[in-house]
Write a protein that binds this DNA or RNA. Structure first.
Length: 498
DNA sequence: CTGGGGAAGGGGCCC
DNA sequence: GGGGCCCCTTCCCCA
């Protein structure tokens, strides 16, 4: 089991500077493995909501392995920035059969993509990384430490806080253990049994109560190495921003914060913001949200290189299109009717999260199964916003609202949908003239029953339309719809491209 | 005012 | 019987 020494720092366990990251110089295939490394290497110490790095190390896939020029020992791995949640994570830290630390690329990493690492479930348990509980999840992008009430926007930021930084969590944990039967007063030591039942952070409870002294980590050779590497691998195209413009760096998801423009004359690196995450998919500027516009597949939000101008994560989601125009209309359509969810705040949308291929499955499948297959007495819990669903399928569809995964496409206009119901609703819009909702007073044809009711209410308020009449109409409508639906059901099957 | 999408709840079918 | 899924409907928000 892990010991204090694993977190107390040593020449073998330096704390990588927070301003250094690792990016891929070439495409790196999924399942690529790096390691092994000593278990003592800490991961996630630098986890925060708004990371900023000023220089990067570049690695590449060569001869069937991941490597960095000039670093035969692969010590660059310590500079990989921690992922803030599962969806921006592309590298997984795990223990191999010899209980040594290894890294595995859980997704293929594209050229220029930043590596972001987090623990797999087993290693997280081993390292005492807490599992967030419903009480930690207060809402969309609101993850709160129950010990000190500090709030974070990302789950891993909170996990790192609880594990590495929160003294209060430690104190609470210690208190609970002391008052529990797991503390052997005679032997003045912790018992092993029952610990998992004591603290909500079951794995956390297995840790020593000694808080690791983060400041004691003294990067030595790594820093020297970094200095060398920094000169070699630092992005040559890191140009400075103009006043209010965010400049894309060689199509990387690296954008200078407008608040801290890089001074090209300065030899000191200034912070830049990494946006490898979050953003809502953007419609191409040439299109609007009109349903019947052609949804150009090559300009789809998932294919178009989007450039971000966000200065604030995640409250503001400005998306820069290919012509440096900020698209904001589409993001406004990302609303939620969920109680407790701010409708004006777009949900947690990892725009640059590489959509998995069919083989990889949807983002849900990339989550640890324990996070979405477990059903509490109250229902299925969304790990993003804490919402409970009576059905697992309901949660599955809901998770797509967080991940942006839209596997269903309208065959007519190619518009993607995450919810098959919404796709069907949309498909009906293409069936012009087939709509069964017709105003009996003016003959206007409307698409939905809601439209007809709203139309009559506003345009013919004096007409004494008994509700039952509308319902009678609707029954006719419904029956015709049923026919249409039965037809469309077959059609839908063809339309749905999973 | 109208049209459209996002999101969610519930009924029902199939395996 | 339960799970997964499809489908309809409704509500809400926005342009």
């Amino acid at each position: 089991m892990n010991t204090d020494s694993e977190h107390s720092g040593s020449p073998m366990s330096p704390t990588p500077p927070a301003h250094v990251g690792v990016v891929a110089l070439t495409d790196i295939p999924t399942q690529a493995i790096v390691g092994p490394y000593p278990r003592t290497i800490p991961i996630g110490l630098n986890t925060c909501d708004k990371p900023s790095i000023s220089c990067v190390l570049e690695i590449k896939w060569k001869d069937g392995r991941v490597m960095m020029d000039g670093d035969p020992t692969n010590q660059w791995m310590v500079y990989i920035q921690p992922a803030r949640d599962r969806h921006e994570q592309n590298v997984e830290a795990y223990m191999d059969e010899k209980h040594e630390l290894c890294l595995r690329f859980i997704r293929s990493v594209k050229t220029s993509e930043q590596l972001l690492v987090w623990y797999n479930d087993e290693l997280a348990r081993y390292k005492g990384i807490p599992i967030l509980k419903p009480q930690n999840i207060r809402g969309n992008q609101e993850y709160t430490c129950t010990a000190c009430e500090k709030t974070f926007q990302f789950p891993n930021s909170l996990k790192a806080h609880i594990r590495f930084r929160c003294l209060k969590s430690r104190e609470d944990q210690q208190e609970k253990l002391i008052t529990s039967s797991a503390f052997d007063k005679k032997r003045n030591m912790w018992g092993r049994s029952g610990l998992n039942d004591i603290h909500p952070y079951s794995a956390f409870s297995q840790l020593s109560s000694v808080r690791p002294d983060v400041s004691s980590y003294k990067p030595t050779t790594f820093i020297n190495k970094l200095d060398k590497v920094e000169r070699i691998s630092r992005l040559p195209h890191m140009t400075h921003t103009t006043s209010d413009q965010a400049i894309n760096l060689s199509k990387r998801d690296v954008v200078f914060s407008t608040a801290s423009p890089i001074n090209p004359a300065s030899t000191v690196s200034q912070p830049i913001q990494i946006f490898n995450h979050i953003h809502t998919p953007a419609f191409p500027i040439a299109m609007d949200n009109t349903a019947l516009r052609l949804y150009h597949p090559f300009l789809s939000p998932y294919n178009a290189p989007t450039r971000m101008c966000c200065n604030q994560i995640p409250s503001v989601h400005h998306v820069i299109d290919n012509r440096d125009h900020c698209i904001s209309s589409y993001e406004r359509s990302f609303t939620s009717s969920s109680p407790g969810v701010n409708r004006h705040s777009p949900p947690h949308m990892p725009c640059n999260f590489p959509l998995p291929s069919d083989k990889q499955g949807e983002p849900l499948d990339l989550l640890p199964k324990s996070l979405y297959t477990s059903k509490s007495r109250r229902g299925h819990l969304c790990i993003y916003c804490g919402k409970l669903y009576s059905r697992k399928y309901g949660l599955k569809i809901h998770l797509r609202t967080h991940t942006g995964y839209k596997p269903l496409k309208c065959k007519v206009c190619l518009r993607p949908f995450g919810d098959p119901s919404n796709l069907n609703k949309h498909v009906r819009l293409h069936a012009e003239g087939d709509t069964p909702y017709k105003c009996q007073f003016c003959g206007k044809v409307l698409v939905r029953r809601r439209d007809l009711e709203r139309h009559i209410k506003s345009r013919h308020p004096d007409q004494t339309v008994v509700k039952s009449e509308i319902e009678a109409d609707s029954s006719t409508v419904d029956s015709s719809l049923e026919e249409a639906d039965s037809d469309s059901a077959e059609t839908d099957n063809e339309l749905i491209v999973a």
